Simulated assay, not measured.
Amino acid sequence: MHMQWFSIVAIYGLFWVLSAFLVMPFGLRTPHEEGETVEKGHADSAPVNFRPGKIVLRASLLAAVFFALYYANYVNGWITLEDLNFFGKPPVEDLGY
C-alpha cells in the first residue's frame, strides 16, 4: 500500500500536536520548586525554565515514533476497523420494501 504525501504530513501533524501536549509538562519547574520568589502579577504555576526548543525536539521524536507505528499498521493491517467494532454489526431492520 502507498499513502499519499499530504496524508503523511497531515497525520504526522496530528501526532505532533498530541505529542507536544504529552511532553510539555515534563521537566518544567515552578518558582517555588526553584526557591525563587513569585513577582506580583505572575501565576504561581508559571514555569521558570520553559524551553520551547526542547519541547519541539521531544514532540518531533515522539510523533515520529507514533507515525512509524501508525504507518506499520497501515501497511501490515494489524488492527483494522473490524477489530475495533466492539458492539458487532448493527441489526438490519425490515423497512417493508
Rank of each mutant, 00 (worst) to 15 (best):
residue 28 L to H: 01
residue 50 F to K: 06
residue 39 E to H: 09
residue 11 I to W: 08
residue 29 R to W: 06
residue 36 E to K: 15
residue 11 I to E: 04
residue 24 M to Q: 14
residue 16 W to Q: 02
residue 23 V to Y: 09
residue 93 E to R: 10
residue 57 L to K: 03
residue 71 Y to L: 08
residue 21 F to R: 06
residue 97 Y to R: 15
residue 6 F to S: 13
residue 32 H to Q: 14
residue 80 T to M: 01
residue 54 K to D: 10
residue 77 G to R: 12
residue 61 L to R: 04
residue 26 F to H: 06
residue 67 F to L: 10
residue 41 G to E: 07
residue 32 H to E: 15
residue 35 G to N: 03
residue 62 L to Y: 01
residue 21 F to V: 06
residue 71 Y to S: 00
residue 10 A to I: 07
residue 11 I to C: 09
residue 36 E to F: 15
residue 93 E to T: 09
residue 1 M to I: 07
residue 44 D to R: 14
residue 61 L to Y: 05
residue 21 F to T: 05
residue 51 R to T: 08
residue 90 P to I: 05
residue 53 G to T: 08
residue 96 G to D: 04
residue 27 G to D: 04
residue 79 I to D: 07
residue 63 A to R: 08
residue 69 L to H: 07
residue 77 G to L: 09
residue 3 M to D: 12
residue 19 S to K: 01
residue 17 V to K: 03
residue 12 Y to H: 11
residue 78 W to Y: 15
residue 17 V to A: 12
residue 33 E to Y: 05
residue 9 V to A: 15
residue 47 P to I: 03
residue 30 T to K: 11
residue 46 A to Y: 04
residue 93 E to Q: 10
residue 11 I to A: 10
residue 59 A to V: 06
residue 64 A to Q: 07
residue 85 N to Y: 01
residue 48 V to E: 00
residue 45 S to A: 13
residue 78 W to A: 15
residue 68 A to M: 11
residue 28 L to W: 04
residue 23 V to F: 04
residue 39 E to I: 01
residue 68 A to V: 14
residue 62 L to C: 00
residue 7 S to H: 15
residue 64 A to S: 14
residue 12 Y to R: 08
residue 88 G to D: 09
residue 50 F to G: 01
residue 20 A to Q: 03
residue 59 A to C: 03
residue 93 E to F: 12
residue 34 E to D: 07
residue 57 L to P: 00
residue 71 Y to G: 00
residue 4 Q to K: 13
residue 77 G to N: 13
residue 3 M to Q: 12
residue 83 D to R: 11
residue 45 S to H: 07
residue 28 L to E: 03
residue 67 F to G: 03
residue 57 L to A: 11
residue 94 D to F: 05
residue 81 L to F: 11
residue 24 M to Y: 14
residue 63 A to W: 04
residue 16 W to N: 00
residue 31 P to S: 08
residue 94 D to C: 01
residue 47 P to L: 02
residue 34 E to A: 15
residue 21 F to D: 01
residue 24 M to T: 15
residue 22 L to S: 12
residue 30 T to Y: 12
residue 50 F to Y: 14
residue 66 F to S: 01
residue 4 Q to R: 13
residue 24 M to F: 13
residue 39 E to A: 09
residue 5 W to N: 14
residue 43 A to I: 00
residue 10 A to P: 00
residue 1 M to D: 06
residue 37 T to S: 13
residue 54 K to S: 10
residue 41 G to F: 10
residue 52 P to V: 02
residue 26 F to L: 06
residue 24 M to W: 14
residue 75 V to T: 10
residue 19 S to Q: 02
residue 85 N to S: 10
residue 63 A to K: 01
residue 79 I to Q: 03
residue 83 D to F: 08
residue 30 T to E: 11
